[in-house]
Amino acid sequence: MYWKSLLATAVAVASTAEAATTLRFSCSQLVVERLDPLVNPGVTPSPHLHQVVGGNAFNSTMDYTVHDMPTTATCTSCTPIEDFSNYWTAVLFFRARNGTFRRVSTFGNELGFTAATGGQTVYYLTTGSGKVTAFKPGFRMTVGDPSFRTAAQIRKYPMLTFTCLQSSMTRSGATTDFPKGACPAGIMASVRFPTCWNGKDLDSPDHQSHTAYPQGGSCPSTHPVSVPQVFYETYWDTRPFNNKAEWPADGSQPFVWSFGDKSGYGHHADYVFGWKGDALQRAMDTNCNSDLFSNKINCPTLKVQTIEQANKCTQKVQVREDLDSWLTTLPGGMPVN
């Protein structure tokens, strides 16, 4: 019964007679640093800290016309070895009662990916209801808004959530703000990107307008092309910080995003497509999937590596700063609000 529930969570679509693609795989941590080639291209360092997985071509500027990821990268921290995409989010920090900050690490998804050195679980999902077009070289997008601080604002992005893990099996009780109590098995942050594309723009000024969520189960006429749903699950190891004697004196939750958000409503994520050749389209066309019992990708058309091999793909930090000590301010001096 549990595995059926997990599959329903992963696919999040109604029952269908047509085949669907449910690719689920591990991406180990590539690098943690202040770079953001989408929102702050060429800026070193970027204003706030990010945790990044995927191909090691990640850089401060990623113009695909001169920076072709599949040919520039020499490895990927994801298990499909033809996936040189980059996936990144902000970084979680614990703010202690005395006002100092400690970076929270990611850890391998305990549902099959414990061998991973942090990072994320990545999904590519389809409903199986018609043709799904893989992203094109140069495609990129973001979801969420780091300026949001209210429940009313986050209604624009209801598919950005947090789950307070009571155990590794927890898959209920998701909220759009940070959990209020201690989470015995950590906090899972989930991100689902839009699945409709306008069919022409690889990006847009706000990095979002060229994409849209379905309306009434179908893509709107302004964004008629169905694309795979990119879905991240990031496990944050908040377990070392569950002692409430170290939490703020007023009992409020102690976690804050690296851009200063203590509400959780500013949750956001970035994606740059970097699959080699037509690998992702082949996977979509053949309805590849991942076995939720063995955690193996059932997709003969894709080449895969082990998690242990993926762990070896890391990137040298370009922005050097102390990220592993107690800090008096967030990296970049970001204010908490």
Results as ranks from 00 to 15, higher is better:
V43Q: 15
V43F: 04
H48I: 01
Y64G: 02
L38G: 10
H268S: 03
A116Y: 08
M188T: 01
E33G: 11
N56A: 14
C164P: 04
T170A: 03
R171D: 07
T142I: 15
F178P: 00
P179V: 08
K244Q: 13
F58I: 10
K303M: 00
W275N: 06
L111M: 09
I307V: 15
Y265T: 02
D270Y: 01
A116N: 04
Q281K: 04
T329P: 09
L302G: 01
D261S: 03
Y157K: 05
L330D: 08
L6Q: 02
A57D: 15
P240S: 09
K262Y: 09
R140N: 15
Y124T: 06
Y87N: 14
S226G: 06
T117K: 13
Q153P: 09
V317Q: 10
V317K: 11
G128Y: 09
R97E: 15
G251I: 05
F293H: 00
G264D: 02
V132D: 05
A73W: 14
T74H: 13
A116D: 01
S167Y: 10
I297C: 01
T61F: 12
Y213L: 03
S60G: 07
D177Y: 06
M188C: 00
V336L: 10
A151R: 14
I81Y: 13
M141V: 15
F94D: 06
N56S: 08
V132E: 10
D201L: 09
Q51A: 11
C78R: 13
S252D: 02
V66H: 12
D145N: 15
S172P: 00
T150A: 12
T133Y: 13
K136A: 15
G266A: 02
Q318S: 12
R155Y: 01
V13D: 05
D63T: 11
K200Y: 12
W247D: 04
F84S: 13
A14P: 03
A283I: 08
F107L: 03
G260Y: 07
C299G: 02
G99H: 14
Q318Y: 07
R34A: 04
T126Y: 09
G216C: 00
T76D: 09
Q120L: 11
A283K: 07
S168H: 03
M159A: 12
E246W: 09
E33A: 09
A189K: 02
P80W: 13
V122Q: 11
A90L: 07
S15F: 02
E82T: 11
V13R: 05
A96C: 07
L49K: 07
S290P: 00
S167P: 08
T222W: 06
F139W: 15
G186V: 08
M62G: 10
F25Y: 15
C196T: 08
S252Y: 06
T65E: 13
K4V: 03
G266E: 02
N295D: 05
A20Y: 14
F101I: 14
Y123I: 05
K200I: 15
L111D: 06
T176L: 01
F231N: 06
A90R: 13
A20H: 14
G118D: 03
N56V: 12
V230P: 01
T133P: 07
T328W: 11
L38H: 08
P47Y: 12
D237N: 15
